[in-house]
Design a protein around this nucleic acid. Structure first.
Lengths: 195, 195
DNA sequence: GGACTGACAGATATTGAAATCTGTCAGCTG
DNA sequence: CAGCTGACAGATTTCAATATCTGTCAGTCC
């Protein structure tokens, strides 16, 4: 299928794995399938990834990092802390909701992957709350927010909005009225945050 | 096993079903098992419940209603709205956490039941948010809370605290630091609610 | 000699036949 | 005759055999 003459890199294997996962789903995607898609033997794949689990986790990490990077742009933006906080939460919700609604099967695939991923998800969540902490810290410094412990507050905000980013709730993101519910929660949290 | 001479009532069937579920788990609990525990034929069970699903849902409803009733006592209590809101949320969290930690298998069983239950869970959630609405409405009337739409605010509070009552998060309720996280979220929400 | 292959052992998944379960109902029983 | 039984058909689950996959490694090929 793919040009078998290029050198085999971790990157090419990850791309092929994404494609195989997209086609076959998480239950039926095998290392043999990935190798076949690349025109190599499956032994070669094991030269770059110690186990199938490690390969899947690397794919997961790439996928999660793409979201982190988009959100980092908002953190570094130049609006007021309130604006950036609202924009950040809305962007996170919108990104997830779009993925879940646009291609439910692929989203389900990645939900399975994140569930089995040991550390990748934990690191991703730590990364996101650290971004949130930055925004809240900025707000405190500017005198717009009250938060004795910005990191703890960031965790609280992240957890309180869980219903709008946790994949477990994906089914409800398509129902009418979610927008309003999201706004209600964010408004309530911001009222608690603003001085 | 059970006295086969008493008259067969829906209530006795529900008790036997709970016991069978506790013993065998949700996957292996059959209507035949329930009938055997009662010393009757399985046809008799179908005289009181149209289907196995209806029987399971009735058991689920009973279980959920027990929680609702405990919380209703707090709603009707005589503390300040803030105290009652804090107590209500803490009681909900504590009840769930206790059940999940005390007998994880039974909790897993009921998690499966609630997942398959069509309307019982929806009604339970509606009941809980209606209790919350009552407390918040009281707070608004007393001038302690600001909430243009108490019902919408109740939903927001309920959803924002989902991590501390949604069974999907049960695993994390046992980890150290959850208490603090719960307090952080509730404090933030109350700051947003108080005038 | 560094990258790759392919045969292999043990682990995991698939399959289809046999067993069990659900829901019905004609008939028994007290 | 109201409540219960147990045999039954179709649906679902179990189980064991069969097939496939994972991870290794001695050997091949530039």
């Amino acid at each position: 299928m793919a040009p078998p003459t290029e050198t085999l890199t971790a990157e090419r294997i990850l791309e092929a794995t994404e494609e195989v996962l997209r086609r076959h789903g998480p239950a039926k995607a095998t290392v043999v399938d990935v190798a076949r898609a690349l025109g190599v033997s499956h032994g070669s794949v094991y030269r770059h990834f110690r186990t199938k689990a490690a390969l899947r986790e690397a794919v997961t990490k790439r996928w999660l990092d793409r979201t982190s990077e988009k959100l980092a742009v908002i953190v570094a933006g130049d609006g007021t802390p309130e604006d950036r906080l609202r924009a950040w939460l809305a962007a996170l919700f919108e990104a997830k909701r779009h993925k879940a609604g646009d291609d439910p099967e692929l989203f389900a695939t990645y939900t399975v992957l994140t569930d089995e991923s040991g550390t990748a998800v934990g690191e991703h969540l730590a990364d996101l709350t650290s971004q949130l902490t930055r925004i809240i810290q900025d707000g405190v410094t500017a005198g717009a927010f009250t938060a004795p412990d910005p990191a703890a507050t960031a965790r609280a905000v992240f957890q309180a909005t869980g219903r709008f980013h946790d994949p477990g709730y994906a089914r409800e993101w398509q129902q009418p009225g979610v927008e309003e519910e999201f706004t209600a929660v964010v408004d309530l949290l911001l009222r608690g945050l603003l001085t």
